[in-house]
Design a protein around this nucleic acid. Structure first.
Lengths: 207, 207
DNA sequence: TTGCATACTGTATGAATATACACTATTCCT
DNA sequence: AGGAATAGTGTATATTCATACAGTATGCAA
């Protein structure tokens, strides 16, 4: 790709940040206003060059159709928002709207699967799953609904709090196992509410 | 929030998916076309109701300004794209454009810090960092540039391949330590290229 | 039945928007 | 000095687009 001049890079950066912050691309007029141009044609010229060099794309005649063709944007796929629950009191039937403390946003490729509407995220409290390399403070993405298979990690409601455990089948009976010797080993999974199956994990570095 | 009718939900869904796939919100005409309406006013009515109920926002008079006010979208912050390198041969000066195998896209909140232009991601190969609970196949986000502090996890170029190690200072001298007894313990960090400091981790569930 | 909300068709209009044409100034290279 | 590329001002215009006005039809509750 041909290099950009300073002005052209500034323009491209502005278009990209406007797109992200406002949710829509700027118009030529808005670009001109931002840079203090008294003529929209100052913008037109720059855009033409940016397009020739392959940094911008747009549909002729369409309003607000400017797109920065960053090489990364091409690789990015669909971004999904997964609600982060502080606590899951009971059945989480349609709890998506309530109790949402935050939001995990990742693209589908990054977490390796396409979350359904029943996906949710939890912040891990405690080190009961350290044997499976899940740490206190990690964020786990879980899928609600599917029947857990032997050995999968699940979130279960135990004594009013949701806890991560390994789901085990022993002689056909489901058990939950904590992956830390400090915790009681096997809990019969009878009457337990399995809230979700572990799908992905996000960890932040400690400072 | 008041509930939506089936038609209204379909409309909201279309607006959202159009926004995501095309990068810009649809016009009233485009919505009408998509649903086969012969009049744009069919759309106008629905939009008015969606706005009244708080599901949609738009700036009057602005083109393509429809925004779905999903409760999650409000929580989502800026999404950043981090290039995923297959391998980092040498100094990674401005290697962002090349060698990019993929793209990790997350919002800033989710990974807990704002990546700079020097951030990059690697797929972990091997279990040399299992002592720090980083597994084979995990994706790690690293920040290039800052001087690593004692105990931080870094990616270093050793024998032509980048490897994760713990950065240690012993008597003022920098060492690199693998967190697995199977690996040689301390490697003098002299002459080694520190490529980045560990900032975040993304793990997919094994199937 | 009488309303009332939803779900449309059809027409119209002004503002928003992209984009072409005509020029000037500056910088950099030859 | 001359020419090309970048960086602007100013004016104009055909679309695109949001939105208002005037209706019709249907289901649903009082």
């Amino acid at each position: 790709m041909q290099p950009l001049t300073a002005k052209q890079r500034a323009l491209a950066d502005f278009i990209e940040s406007h797109q992200r912050q406002q949710g829509r691309a700027p118009t030529y007029q808005e670009i001109a206003d931002h840079f203090g141009y008294r003529s929209v044609n100052a913008v037109t010229g720059h855009i033409r060059l940016l397009r020739q060099k392959g940094y911008l794309a747009s549909d002729t005649g369409k309003a607000r159709s400017l797109r920065v063709t960053s090489p990364l944007a091409k690789l990015r796929s669909r971004i999904v928002d997964i609600p982060l629950f502080g606590s899951i009191p009971a059945g989480l039937p349609q709890a998506r709207e309530q109790d949402t403390e935050g939001c995990i946003s990742v693209d589908v490729e990054s977490i390796g699967y396409k979350p359904s509407r029943n996906a949710f995220a939890l912040r891990v409290a405690g080190d009961s799953m350290i044997g499976r390399h899940i740490l206190d403070g990690d964020f786990v993405v879980l899928e609600h609904g599917p029947e857990p298979r032997n050995g999968q990690i699940v979130a279960a409601l135990i004594d009013g709090a949701s806890t991560l455990k390994t789901f085990l089948l022993k002689n056909g009976k489901p058990y939950l196992k904590a992956e830390n010797p400090k915790y009681p080993d096997l809990v019969p999974a009878q009457e337990l509410m399995i809230q979700g199956v572990f799908k992905a994990l996000i960890r932040r570095a400690r400072e």
